[in-house]
Design a protein around this nucleic acid. Structure first.
Lengths: 350, 350
DNA sequence: TTCTTCTTCTAACACGCGTTAGCAGATTCG
DNA sequence: CGAATCTGCTAACGCGTGTTAGAAGAAGAA
């Protein structure tokens, strides 16, 4: 039970050598120190329970061996959302491989300046930005800095922007082709608008599927949710009233966020809409929640753990100044067919 | 776009003062520095974009303003588990209040020695241990150190062990009384054994409920799962075969972990057991997953966010050497009745 | 004028460690 | 025997900052 921290100089004194010698031995540097002396030092270190001080080490080497993570989202988005758990699991295992720790920047969501200052304080060697709603000011501000940054699940238009994401365009394409194959011809599309990169990409995927099936683009009824709108009851009401006001009535819905899709399928029966009979639903960001819901949600799955791990790899390449040829690494998506999309249209409406 | 880091001495030189003066001004120390000089320094700091270096500050003050978090569990436990997300959300908001960041110790689960070294490296001011299966070697080893530590959701028998948990005994009591009120008389109890504090506590709660209803203690059929058993398919098989081998056959099950309960109710129909008709199920650690499952799980809820935030409060009290009277802070639990416990016994078996 | 007191600022130390330059002593070579 | 080389080690600097002790100059007092 050491009551005070053991420093390297304590080890050196106990071994009867200078601190420099102790440093050489403990760091395995070949400075011609005879095995006998080395043993003395190592023994003293073990007996005293010496642990190198991470702070001092970071100061002198300029490397903290930490990577920062910023959750640039309202807290309520992640407490009951497996998206973040999965990404974090991937990030963690990636960090373990490279022997890095994770610095979770805790800051109130809208106060990006506090986060900005924190990231520039040098407490980590680089930063991962996770923010599905990051049409914010933090990302561009950070990219104008010399701090290595990798964005997860989004990107912005900036020459220094590195990112890891899934193939959003293909995901939306798969979702729509699935619905088209089931016989649907009128679609609702819920997304956050073009300000978020994946919003734009998924929109393009939707258009491609419609185009390929020679369907007119006005078969797509777009509902753009306000960026600041939490997936709350109030939001669900406005989303449902949109669904019911649109003519011709859509028979299928693609909702770009799992949390919102879950709330929707929970509330739609109360509004007289049966899923999938009256409305087929396909969601994004498939996690175990989609599988458990009733009806279970057909949705686009992306390899969140791999994405998290790949983001760490990319960030560490940037930190250690290796060449990173790809600005954005994309992972393939896949369609998980479950109940909410139904088995096809028996009596298509007009 | 500063290509190199701006240090305090750069600010001082730009303002034409010594570094000491700059330090006084920037830290708001009253050293009789006239307002005019102060303005010069502040202006220079703003123009150069000065940010204090967190590492150097930590070295000289001895405070990192970081709290460590150790997830002393296999990774697979948390990727698809809302328990951790909720606790972490609470920890984050607690940390924000105190202006602390979070250092997520990433290490392979069984390798506690690496974690131990990491925690003692002084990269954080104190550590939160989260480990529902922490009958491990890390916790006692850390408690023999002068590093402040708070355990979340468990505790061990050690004079320096501080912890935040829910009222496990009461939780189990509520679960069993609910089932007893529904008419059940033969029970299965799935738990990890007495090696984990909440296992022991919940067991005692079960006994209290039985005792209060004047039921014999052999009405409780205890299944103790191996600590290292993941809630996998293999585990589910052995759990189900236990259920089917016990005589008299239990009509109700209390399973101490949500993830296992979810897997069970998914597989029980395949084994010819209907939930809740043949077997009423009550689970612990209620999250949104319990609400979404089919049948939805009746379960004991605990305020995970509050627990996380309270653990931060307690840890920071320890770090700043304030008096912490309570060794273990307990939060109340509540029973959330859903479908899996049924509406009562119509035809109780013998 | 000379001493004291205030105002305004700075030199210098400390935090724990990696690292460079170089110092003694022993050995080898010419 | 003196010079060069090798062996084994250490003094000292620097990383960026908070902080203490005290210096230089001005102002006031004797």
């Amino acid at each position: 039970m050491p009551s005070r921290r053991v420093r390297m100089i304590d080890v050196a004194q106990a071994a009867g050598v200078s601190r420099t010698t102790a440093s050489f031995v403990l760091n395995g540097r070949d400075a011609g120190i005879p095995p006998e002396t080395q043993q003395r030092v190592l023994l003293a270190a073990r007996q005293l329970g010496y642990r190198p001080n991470a702070t001092a080490l970071a100061l002198v080497t300029g490397r903290t061996h930490r990577i920062g993570i910023v959750l640039n989202e309202p807290e309520s988005f992640r407490a009951n959302d497996l998206y973040f758990s999965n990404v974090l699991a991937g990030v963690t295992s990636g960090a373990v491989c490279h022997n890095y720790n994770l610095l979770l920047h805790s800051a109130h969501y809208p106060d990006w300046q506090a986060l900005y200052a924190d990231i520039l304080s040098g407490a980590s060697d680089g930063t991962l930005l996770i923010g599905r709603y990051a049409s914010d000011q933090l990302t561009p501000a950070l990219l104008d800095t010399d701090v290595p940054v990798v964005c997860i699940s989004y990107q912005i238009d900036h020459p220094r922007c590195y990112a890891v994401d899934c193939d959003n365009e293909e995901g939306a394409y798969l979702a729509f082709r699935h619905l088209i194959d089931l016989g649907h011809r009128q679609f609702a599309f819920f997304y956050p608008g073009h300000s978020v990169s994946w919003g734009c990409e998924r929109y393009l995927g939707a258009l491609r599927a419609l185009d390929e099936a020679s369907l007119p683009s006005d078969a797509l009824h777009v509902y753009e949710w306000p960026e600041t709108a939490l997936p709350s009851l109030k939001w669900v009401h406005s989303a449902i009233s949109f669904l019911q006001s649109v003519r011709p009535r859509p028979t299928a819905l693609v909702c770009c966020e799992e949390a919102r899709a879950l709330h929707l399928v929970e509330r739609l029966p109360g509004a007289g809409v049966r899923v999938p009979d009256d409305l087929a639903v396909v969601s994004f960001n498939s996690t175990e929640l989609s599988a458990l819901a009733r009806p279970s949600l057909t949705s686009i799955w992306q390899p969140l753990k791999e994405i998290g791990a790949a983001a760490v790899d990319m960030l560490i390449d940037l930190i250690e100044e290796r060449d990173v040829p790809q600005r954005c690494r994309r992972f393939p998506v896949s369609l998980h067919v479950r109940e909410s999309s139904g088995t096809g249209m028996e009596s298509p409406r007009t």
